[in-house]
């Protein structure tokens, strides 16, 4: 029997909140990439509007963390749960901002037909990135440092694809000046996805800190 039932409940709730936030962010990333690939302005604008809700949720959960610290004075692992929780939130919030960046790119491409071949890499990169977010959160919930490390290793794959797309898009632009605009936007989008993957890696590092109490650089 725990002597700190109310506190344990608050920590459990915090975890639930973070998962809720993560699923919204994951969806936003997915939708933003869809809106881009289909050049769907309506879907893109929904992502942008939806970000307000994510920001609001972020502040709400952050407020709860502050309250826990002020009233419960957590130490040791309890403190790490709250602190890593806040840092995971922060990383999720940044991911959502990048989803908005991607949606904005989709809007800028409005009316265009995307013809460049490297476009096909983008859903692949997005899938990997989403997988990382999902695994990162799973590893958090399960305190699974092996899963966290494995997830962080996926970041290399993302970086690899990014380098590949970069080279190919440069070639496209050199061969055909008409695709310079769409290629540039796609380059940005890849860059955003690459950043999202970096934030996922940060989450993995936080999980390792949460479990071991030691910081470990993974990318």
């Amino acid at each position: 029997m725990s002597t700190r039932a109310a506190f344990d409940k608050a920590l459990k709730e915090l975890q639930q909140d973070i998962l809720r936030m993560a699923s919204l962010v994951e969806q936003a990333v997915y939708d933003s990439v869809q809106s881009l690939v289909k050049v769907d302005v309506t879907e893109a604008s929904q992502v942008i509007i939806g970000d307000d809700m994510i920001d609001k949720l972020f502040l709400e959960i952050e407020e709860k963390c502050i309250k826990i610290i002020a009233t419960q004075q957590p130490i040791a692992r309890d403190l790490r749960i709250v602190i890593t929780g806040m840092k995971i939130l922060l990383n999720l919030e940044r991911m959502a901002d990048h989803a908005v960046d991607i949606a904005r790119s989709a809007m800028c491409l409005s009316g265009q037909t995307l013809t460049v071949k490297p476009l096909e890499y983008i859903p692949q990169m997005a899938r990997l990135t989403q997988q990382m977010i999902k695994d990162g959160l799973d590893s958090y919930v399960q305190s699974d440092i092996e899963k966290a490390s494995a997830m962080c290793a996926l970041d290399d794959d993302v970086d690899y694809i990014f380098a590949q797309v970069f080279r190919e898009l440069i070639n496209c632009m050199m061969e055909n000046p008409e695709v310079v605009m769409q290629s540039t936007y796609l380059l940005h989008v890849c860059r955003y996805l690459e950043r999202i993957a970096d934030h996922a890696t940060n989450i993995g590092e936080e999980v390792i800190y949460l479990v071991t109490g030691e910081h470990k650089e993974l990318n």
Partner: peptide
């Protein structure tokens, strides 16, 4: 001791989850 105690019993005690 207060950030990463090595022994689970220490952790349980300082975080108030004792007994």
């Amino acid at each position: 001791i207060f950030t990463r105690p090595k022994d689970q019993r220490t952790e349980d005690y300082i975080t108030g989850r004792f007994g």
